[in-house]
Nucleic acid binder design. Structure first.
Length: 396
RNA sequence: GUGGCUGUAGCUCAGUUGGUUAGAGCAUCGGAUUGUGGUUCCGAGGGUCGCCGGUUCAAGUCCGGUUAGCCACC
C-alpha cells in the first residue's frame, strides 16, 4: 500500500552506490531537510545532556530524537503541548523524531534497568515495572512509583502532542534468550499494535508528522521476512528496524541483513539504537538511512572521546580519565571543526574530568557530536562518489 | 614530670569474648557502556596492624616495655 505523506514531507534517493544497497537521500520535513545517511542524537528527556541546542547546531547536528516513554511520565504530553511543542520548548527548530516507548517496555520488563534500581536502592525491590497485555503496557513509574498505562493509541497521541516530525509505532521488543515461538507471538502482538498505531495516527494527526513502522522478528530470518512484509503492505512513511539484533556484533550484522533485505527500498529506513563507527559503515550497505544511538553522548559522560579506530589500533574511543593523558598537550582531533576538538588539550580535559568540572564532559560531548557529523559527511560522500571501501579505510 | 586517649592501605576509619588468606569508603590503575534512570557499572594493585619482647596451639585483639601525636593535671 502506498502512502501519500502530508505537505512538507518527502524522501528522495539521490544516489546509489554500486554492488551494495548503500544510497544517499534527502529526507524532507517541515522543520528542515536532512541528507541521508544521517545520525540522530538522543535528547531522551527533551534535552541533550550538557549542551544547549545552540551548541548542538554549532557542532553540526541536524536532527534529534526524544523519547515518548520518558516524556509521557514526566512532564507529560499535554505539558509539552502547552509549551508549544518540542521544537519551541527546547529551542531546537530542526527535524525531531520521537521513539514510541516500545524499547522501554522491553528493558523495564526484563530487569535490565531494574538491576540498576536494585543496586541503588539496596535489595528487596525487584518487582517488575511493566506488565504487558493485548491492549497495552501497565507501567510503574521509575520516578515516583505511580501507575501508568501506555497503549498504541496513547503513544501516538503523546507523540502528536510532543509535536515531533517523525513518529514511531509502539512495538513490543522481544528479549534475546527466548524461544522462536515467543518471538513469533511477540511479533504478532507488535503487528496488531502497529495497525492500531496507524488507525490512531490517521484519526488524530494534524498533518504535522509522519509515521514509521517497525520490523520485528528477532534473530529469525523467516520472522523478519514476515514482519518486513507486514510493514511493506501498510501505509507507513518510513520503516525502522527494531527488536532483538542478536548477541554479538557479527550476529547483529546478519540480523540487520535479514531484516532489511525484504524491506521496500523507496522508504527511509531507520536502525534503532545503533551507532558505533563500525556499525554505521556496515549499516549503510544494508540501505540504512538514519541511525540513532546514545553512545556518543553517554560515552562522553564517562570520559570517552570518539576516535577513528584505524588510527588507534582498533580502539573506538579514548578514555580521557586515563593517566596517560595527564601531560598530553595534543587536541582531541585538529581536523574537526569545533573548538572542543581542536582548541583544548587532552591534558586540560583530563584535569577537568578528574576535578569533577562539568566542562570536561561538555567538551567531550561536543567533540563526539562533531565526530559523528564528520563521519556521516564522509559516509555520504563515499556513497555519492561510489568509493565506500576507500573512504571507509580512513576510519576502520 | 604524672595520668589518660590514639597509632591498622596514599587518606578517613571498621575489625566481636583472641580463631581461616586483616576489611570498607575515598584515592590510584585499568576495563565496560549501542531505540539514555546524568559523576554509572565491573575488575585490579596496594598493609611487617607504630616498634621490641612476652603469654598462647593461635595475637590487629591480652600483658610488659618503648616510640610518636593529642588532651588533662602538677
Amino acid at each position: 500500500m502506498n502512502h501519500t505523506p502530508p505537505e512538507g514531507f518527502s524522501f528522495e534517493i539521490t544516489s546509489q552506490a554500486s554492488g551494495t544497497h548503500a544510497r544517499t537521500g534527502l529526507l524532507e520535513t517541515p522543520h528542515g531537510t536532512i541528507e541521508t545517511p544521517h545520525f540522530i542524537f538522543c535528547a531522551t528527556k527533551a534535552a541533550i545532556k550538557g549542551l544547549t541546542m545552540d551548541q548542538m547546531r554549532e557542532c553540526g547536528a541536524e536532527i534529534i530524537l526524544a523519547n515518548t516513554y520518558h516524556l509521557f511520565l514526566n512532564p507529560g504530553g499535554p505539558f509539552v503541548e502547552r509549551q508549544g511543542g518540542l521544537h519551541r520548548m527546547t529551542d531546537w527548530h530542526g527535524p525531531v523524531l520521537t521513539d514510541s516507548g516500545g524499547f522501554q517496555i522491553f528493558s523495564l520488563g526484563n530487569g535490565w534497568v531494574a538491576d540498576e534500581i536494585k543496586g541503588k536502592r539496596q535489595h528487596g525491590t525487584e518487582r517488575k515495572l511493566v506488565e504487558i497485555s493485548e491492549d497495552g503496557a501497565h507501567f510503574i513509574s521509575y520516578i515516583d512509583g505511580t501507575r501508568h498505562y501506555l497503549t498504541p493509541e496513547t503513544s501516538i497521541q503523546t507523540q502528536i502532542q510532543l509535536g515531533a516530525d517523525l513518529i514511531v509505532v509502539l512495538d513490543e521488543c522481544s528479549p534475546y534468550n527466548v524461544t522462536r515461538d515467543y518471538t513469533a507471538r511477540s511479533m504478532e502482538l507488535s503487528h496488531r499494535w502497529e495497525k492500531r498505531s496507524l488507525d490512531a495516527y490517521h484519526a488524530m494527526t494534524n498533518g504535522k508528522q509522519v509515521l514509521y513502522g517497525i520490523v520485528q522478528g528477532g534473530v529469525y530470518e523467516d520472522l523478519r521476512k514476515e514482519s518486513a512484509g507486514f510493514v511493506n503492505e501498510h501505509p507507513f512513511f518510513g520503516q525502522a528496524i527494531g527488536g532483538c539484533l542478536g548477541g554479538t556484533r557479527e550476529e547483529m550484522f546478519e540480523v540487520i541483513g535479514r531484516a532489511s533485505r525484504p524491506l521496500r527500498k523507496d522508504r527511509p529506513t531507520h536502525l534503532l539504537g545503533i551507532g558505533g563507527v563500525h556499525d554505521i559503515w556496515e549499516g549503510i550497505h544494508h540501505g540504512i538511512d538514519t541511525f540513532d544511538c546514545v553512545h556518543p553522548t553517554r560515552i562522553a559522560r564517562h570520559g570517552g572521546a570518539l576516535i577513528r579506530p584505524v588510527e588507534h589500533g582498533g580502539k573506538t574511543h579514548l578514555n580521557l580519565r586515563n593517566a596517560c593523558f595527564k601531560n598530553d598537550d595534543q587536541p582531541l582531533d585538529e581536523r574537526l571543526p569545533c573548538k572542543a576538538s581542536r582548541e583544548f588539550s587532552r591534558a586540560y580535559i583530563h584535569y577537568l574530568l578528574r576535578a569533577g568540572e562539568m566542562l570536561g564532559i561538555q567538551l567531550l560531548i561536543q567533540h563526539n557530536v562533531c565526530f559523528m557529523m564528520e563521519l556521516m559527511r564522509s559516509v555520504r560522500s563515499s556513497i555519492r562518489n561510489d568509493r565506500i571501501r576507500e573512504e571507509q579505510s580512513l576510519w576502520i
